[in-house]
Amino acid sequence: MDIEVLGTLAVKENGVSITPTAPKSRQVLALLALHADQVVPVSALMEELWADRPPRSARTTLQTYVLQLRELITAALPEPAPGEEPVSAKDILMTCPGGYRLNTRGGTSDVREFERLAGLGYRAMDAGDHPGAARLLREALALWSRAPFADVQAGAQLEMEAKRLEESRLCALDQRIEADLRLGRHRELLAELTVLVNRYRTHESLCGQFMLALQRSGRRSEALDAFRKLRDTLVRELGLEPSAALRQLQRAILLAGSEKASGAAEPAPV
């Protein structure tokens, strides 16, 4: 089974789509696919479908959605070869004590691959292998096409998981940009960072990276302006001042302008 959730939902068995069109069935499959090869409790599935107001027939209705998914799986399964043990839909979408388990049988999952590549990228970063870190994290981020479960009507469980995945993506993005900065790719990053700081207007790390890329590109006044914009947004929307690290970067950029002729070191990344 091959699973994609980092964008639109796509689940295939034997190369054949088993993704249903009905909204509730899609929710069930999305949650099972995200936690593939793990038991998803009935309580979590019910919360996803009906929040804290399940109907009296909730368990029966959930079983109906599971049966619908098994019908799609059955249609996708190949005929067993002579002498081969046949595989049934119940072997793939398994009923377990307390819940259900989607058995990938060694198939692929874009979430698992993202987490694997990102983990390797973080370790490369810690080891000082910035080219390797940039490459691995770029590969991890390339697995994303849109927001998680972009075409699924998400309930409480999927909304929570989408936020978790988005935070993981931002962490990988932050580290990939950091690796690129350490490789001297500041000019290449300016267009991307311009978009990111406007999309994530209170994200201090991205702002710090933008300030550094601007300063290294000889655009000191724009770097200081980026700090002012972030500070105004933080104060207005959250009642907070920028972090000490970001304020220190601002001061370093100010000093770098006045000490440029003396050969002073440039500001360090946040």
Rank of each mutant, 00 (worst) to 15 (best):
Arg199Pro: 06
Arg199Thr: 14
Arg199Cys: 11
Arg199Met: 13
Tyr200Lys: 02
Tyr200Cys: 08
Tyr200Ala: 04
Arg201Tyr: 13
Arg201Gln: 15
Arg201His: 11
Thr202Gln: 04
His203Tyr: 08
His203Val: 00
His203Asp: 04
His203Pro: 02
His203Cys: 03
Glu204Gln: 08
Ser205Thr: 08
Ser205Glu: 07
Ser205Pro: 12
Ser205Tyr: 09
Ser205Gly: 13
Leu206Gly: 03
Leu206Lys: 06
Leu206Ser: 08
Cys207Thr: 13
Cys207Tyr: 14
Cys207Ser: 08
Gly208Ala: 06
Gly208Val: 06
Gly208Tyr: 10
Gly208Pro: 15
Gln209Tyr: 08
Gln209Ala: 01
Phe210Met: 03
Phe210Ile: 00
Phe210Asp: 00
Phe210Glu: 00
Phe210Val: 00
Met211Gln: 03
Leu212Gln: 00
Leu212Glu: 11
Leu212His: 07
Leu212Gly: 09
Leu212Cys: 05
Ala213Asn: 04
Ala213Tyr: 01
Gln215Phe: 00
Gln215Trp: 04
Gln215Ser: 04
Gln215Val: 00
Arg216Gly: 10
Arg216Cys: 03
Ser217Cys: 12
Ser217Met: 02
Gly218Met: 05
Gly218Tyr: 13
Gly218Thr: 06
Arg219Asp: 01
Arg219His: 04
Arg219Cys: 03
Arg219Met: 13
Arg219Ile: 06
Arg220His: 02
Ser221Val: 09
Ser221Ala: 15
Glu222Gln: 11
Glu222Thr: 04
Ala223Ser: 07
Ala223Met: 02
Leu224Trp: 06
Leu224Met: 04
Leu224Gln: 14
Leu224Gly: 03
Asp225Ser: 03
Asp225Phe: 13
Asp225Met: 10
Ala226Cys: 10
Ala226Gly: 09
Phe227Met: 09
Phe227Gln: 01
Phe227Gly: 09
Phe227Cys: 09
Arg228Ile: 01
Lys229Met: 05
Lys229His: 14
Leu230Met: 00
Leu230His: 02
Arg231Val: 13
Arg231Met: 08
Arg231Lys: 13
Arg231Glu: 03
Asp232Ile: 12
Thr233Ile: 10
Thr233Gly: 10
Leu234Phe: 14
Leu234Tyr: 09
Leu234Ala: 12
Val235Glu: 05
Val235Ile: 09
Val235Pro: 02
Val235Tyr: 05
Val235Asn: 09
Arg236Gly: 14
